[in-house]
């Protein structure tokens, strides 16, 4: 049976997993939905109570019923590279592709509905709370007055995007940033604003969860880093990521989180404070892992490959179905 990987050609992080699947002799078909009707084709037939479906890409033909798993990694928008792309064609192509794949019986990393829901940061914070993970006091508001009152209660704040998306016109980066006490909050009225109590951290933690496997890395906060540079993604630091142990209580909570979210994969960010407490910041349902592996040697790509390669029936979490009864 075949592993289907949905991602863009430039995704060299996905390559790290493909290498392991190739070594194991597991058949792989990798395609980008953006190439539908250009170099990717699909067909599904519902006749006399049975279903047969196929995908083809790059000269490879795979039966949809013969998929053991689908890795929803970093796919492009369906049919966006077609000869005559349009919003209508993208919608049609997305409905056809993902609709057919939902009927495949394959295990998902991650199931599309669960993946979509898991991107909502307010939802993440609530699930994390319920699963016993410490969450910094957070406010999401368009009320300037609420922002001012929150800043009076928590004078040391950071601001970050609610969505994690950066503006493109013009291209801007919006790092998590400290908010000075004298900040003017009037412009909060012009866009939902996420304010969060700053954790005085001694390290950043990146915990990559693959099924039941938890692989954590720690990056100590360098004394040379400007205290205002709170976003580890943008701060200049010579300190590398290093492997670290996951405290048992955190491990239990993280596994509860993934179950509640219906996720087979998650890259969770924590801030470790001076007492060693891991404060939950977010869970990226398709978070990057290559930079952690190249620094630490943690076998993340291999662990993902092993998860994808398992037979369908082996892993009860594997279907990646969102647990709508646990958290909604």
């Amino acid at each position: 049976m075949t592993v289907l990987i949905l991602t863009n050609d430039e995704d060299v992080t996905a390559d790290m997993v493909v290498v392991h699947l190739n070594t194991s002799g597991v058949p792989v078909v990798r395609l980008d939905p953006a190439d539908l009707t250009y170099s990717v084709a699909l067909s599904g037939e519902f006749v006399h109570g049975s279903f047969r479906g196929h995908l083809s890409s790059g000269g490879r033909l795979v039966s949809i019923g013969g998929l053991r798993s689908v890795w929803l990694r970093r796919p492009g928008g369906p049919a966006t590279r077609a000869a005559e792309p349009s919003a209508w064609l993208t919608e049609e192509s997305g409905q056809a592709l993902y609709g057919l794949l939902r009927g495949s019986g394959a295990r998902w990393m991650n199931q599309p509905d669960a993946a979509h829901r898991a991107r909502y940061k307010p939802w993440q914070l609530r699930v994390a709370q319920r699963c016993g993970l410490p969450v910094p006091a957070t406010l999401i508001t368009t009320f300037p007055r609420a922002a001012r009152e929150f800043a009076e209660r928590y004078p040391d704040l950071v601001v970050k995007p609610v969505s994690g998306v950066h503006p493109q016109d013009p291209p801007l980066a919006v790092p998590t940033s400290r908010v000075p006490p004298e900040a003017d909050f009037s412009s909060v009225a012009h866009g939902p604003t996420l304010l969060q109590r700053r954790i005085a951290k001694r390290a950043d933690i990146r915990l990559t969860a693959v099924g039941d496997e938890l692989l954590a890395a720690r990056k100590a906060t360098s004394a040379e880093v400007d205290p205002d540079d709170v976003d580890v993604r943008f701060a200049e630091s010579a300190e590398p990521w290093r492997p670290t142990e996951v405290p048992p209580r955190v491990a239990e909570s993280v596994r509860s989180y993934l179950t509640a979210a219906g996720l087979a994969y998650g890259a969770l960010d924590f801030a470790e404070d001076g007492d060693g407490i891991w404060w939950f910041l977010e869970c990226n349902q398709s978070g990057q892992f290559g930079f952690v592996e190249v620094d630490t040697g943690l076998p993340i790509a291999r662990t993902i490959a092993e998860w994808l390669a398992r037979p369908r029936s082996e892993d009860p979490v594997g279907s990646g179905r969102p647990d709508t009864t646990a958290v909604s």
Partner: peptide
């Protein structure tokens, strides 16, 4: 006016 978060972009 631009949203508050973009003051830090």
């Amino acid at each position: 006016m631009q949203p508050f978060a973009l003051n830090y972009a």
